[in-house]
């Protein structure tokens, strides 16, 4: 491995060449704040919070865009660095509503966390605020520009990972706004409501619509597999009082922090009263709840009987894209070898 030797906060390290300072530091357990960085995206260097001091390099340098070099002496939390971060956070919070009491993201807001860590209160420059803009035309999530810190994560995820390019930046400078083309709103854009922008928003600007009120610290998370298709995306269900109130994509799985509209937003059926939670069998013309054992017994005995009475080709099987490849394979095998028919198909062909 091609490595370089460098000093970070007084300690010597040997790190692979080409690694960005931010990654190098996170690998060795040094936490550098950032609001705009995402390992999956091309570094943007827009929040400027990850700046570090490199001895002999003059001004500060963003750790997300600087690669490690031989002999570098880096200070990630020197007085100069901390002061710069405080000033930047002060600028951000000065142009941000202080409605943490009612904000859905309170407790899961990076701006809140960093302001707490760096001792910033209400902001020195609470003068002119960005013009309010609110887009609630999407059925699954809302956008509140007054809370947006313009980190650009949503725009970049939509462009670089989702490939939809539904949103971009509008206007310049202090008036910059994340918006849809020609200001026509999310409803009239090419947005596919995948919600990947919502998943990366570090503050409360992009919020999923939720039927239940909850605070971020009240929830439990449970890792599970999305059951909507065979891809098997991993996700964390957020639950309060044993009820699902939200979904976050898993970053450490093959879906790498992405979900589609179904996985991200379609969970309300889970607690719907019409949902079947037990197998049903028809007894005397009425469907009644039963055990899985009994249900399987009914299925196998009926299959045997039907095969005897009417032959193999009296069966037809249709399986679903919501099953995995393995399930689908087993299904057609059961039809071909056990029931003895080729009458088997899949919803993806319809």
């Amino acid at each position: 491995m091609n490595t370089v030797k460098l000093t970070i906060n007084g300690k010597q390290y040997e790190i692979e060449k080409g690694t960005f300072v931010l990654k190098a530091c996170s690998d060795i357990g040094i936490d550098i704040p950032t609001m705009c960085h995402d390992e999956r995206l091309v570094p943007s260097g827009s929040c400027r919070l990850c700046q570090v001091e490199v001895e002999g390099w003059g001004k500060l340098h963003t750790a997300c865009t600087t690669q490690v070099k031989e002999g570098m002496v880096i200070h990630t939390h020197s007085e100069k660095v901390v002061k710069a971060r405080q000033d930047l956070l002060d600028m951000l919070i000065s142009n941000h509503p202080l409605d943490c009491l009612t904000c859905e993201s309170a407790g899961a807001c990076k701006l809140q966390d960093l302001c707490y860590e760096y001792g910033i209160t209400e902001g020195t420059y609470r003068w002119e605020m960005s013009k309010p803009y609110y887009d609630d035309t999407n059925p699954f999530y809302t956008f509140d520009a007054s809370k947006c810190i313009l980190c650009g994560l949503c725009v970049r995820v939509c462009d670089e990972l989702q490939g939809t390019n539904a949103i971009g930046f509008e206007n310049r400078g202090f008036e910059t706004l994340v918006a849809t083309p020609f200001g026509e709103g999310l409803e009239n854009s090419t947005c596919v409501s995948c919600g990947n922008c919502v998943s990366v928003c570090p503050v409360g600007a992009l919020e999923p619509r939720s039927k239940m009120k909850f605070r971020q610290w009240e929830i439990e998370t449970t890792r599970t597999t999305c059951s909507y298709c065979g891809v098997g995306c991993q996700m964390d269900l957020k639950t309060k009082n044993n009820r699902v109130v939200g979904v976050e994509p898993a970053f450490d799985a093959h879906n790498e922090g992405l979900l589609c509209v179904k996985g991200k937003f379609s969970y309300n059926f889970l607690s719907h009263p019409d949902r079947l939670t037990m197998p049903l069998v028809r007894k005397d013309g009425v469907l009644v709840e039963t055990t899985w054992d009994e249900a399987y017994n009914v299925i196998t005995s009926k299959m045997k009987q039907t095969k005897e009475d009417f032959g193999s080709d009296s069966f037809a099987g249709l399986t679903s894209a919501r099953c995995t490849n393995e399930d689908n394979y087993m299904f057609q095998k059961m039809f071909r070898s056990t029931l003895g028919t080729n009458n088997v198909d899949h919803c993806a062909r319809l």
């Binding site: 827009s46 000065s94 313009l150 930046f169 202090f174």
Partner: peptide, 21 residues
């Protein structure tokens, strides 16, 4: 400068505005 800042980075977008104020 306030007018012409592209709005990408925090100090230029927010800082110059405050200085102008």
């Amino acid at each position: 400068s306030v007018d012409e800042s592209c709005g990408k980075c925090v100090p230029c977008r927010e800082g110059t505005k405050r200085m102008h104020e």
